[in-house]
Amino acid sequence: MIELRNVTRRFGDTVAVDRVNLTIETGEVCVLVGSSGCGKSTTLRMINHLLPHSAGEILVDGEDTTAMNPQQLRLNMGYVIQGTGLFPHWTVARNIAMVPRLLKWPRQRIDARVDELMKLLDLDPATHAHKYPQQLSGGQAQRVGVARALAADPNILLMDEPFGAVDAITRENLQLEMLRIQRQVRKTTVFVTHDIDEALKLASRIAVMDQGRIIQHDTPENILRRPASDFVESLVGKQDRGLKLMSLRPVRDLMTPHGSPKPSRPGADVLREDDNLRLALSVMLWQDLPQVAVFNARGEETGVITRERIIQEGA
């Protein structure tokens, strides 16, 4: 758990972060979102003490960070930055092994861990371990960045616009990957982005920041439904909030289940329980259907969802 109490950061006369109070529960993904210069990166960098705070307290698992050795503090926090921050003079494997080596793990344990992480992030160790960062694509490099942050199995993950420098399709894939990994490893994550859609997709709770203050700290759904101010409202977009809300809810919520799953039928582009309502509606609109079948992960048909119900209850 990370707690920020009245945290303030001044640069000379300007106040970059102004009396911020924020509690991030263990295992949740807190996304700090806001336009550039709003203080979101500064807030993140104060958590691992890359920037000392001017006033207030930052507690990690109840302990004040100012009292801790900054290196020890950071070794227990994975850190991913925009443009990867991979060291160009080290191979992929050496980059991932960075923190374990700092922690002086035995050689074999490091090798095993590097292998494990590369597989977790869908990178083939045989082909990629000995490449240099310049030889990777943007998406691959970013995965290595995430692997490096996870290497010593830290409790906390800090991510500063990690997917800001990659193209839209790669970003989408990385986001899905991150959701998948988060389900597996459950790290307390602080994620900074200026992209509200990314925030809505990834967050357990979102903290909207503006001019150094937190304007609203709430779940994505509440941010959409009850924006605390005009600023938040314009950030999430007034008009397409309905669709954005739909994209937060899985098909499972509104489908009519069958009594027992029907055996699988071949078909690639079928709707799954985990897909969101927005996608379901889109499929129905495109194929001009009043309802579509829903399948589970094993490919069995588990129910149907109707256009009518989505429109009535979706948003």
Binding site: L75, G78, Y79, I81, G85, P88, L102
Partner: peptide, 25 residues
């Protein structure tokens, strides 16, 4: 500076940042 920062952010001391990151590069 982002590379030095990445090093610091992951728990390197200033000495480690200098000798393992800055100097080799």
């Amino acid at each position: 500076e982002s590379l030095a920062d990445a090093g610091r952010g992951m728990g390197m001391t200033e000495g480690q940042v200098f000798f393992q990151v800055k100097l080799p590069l």
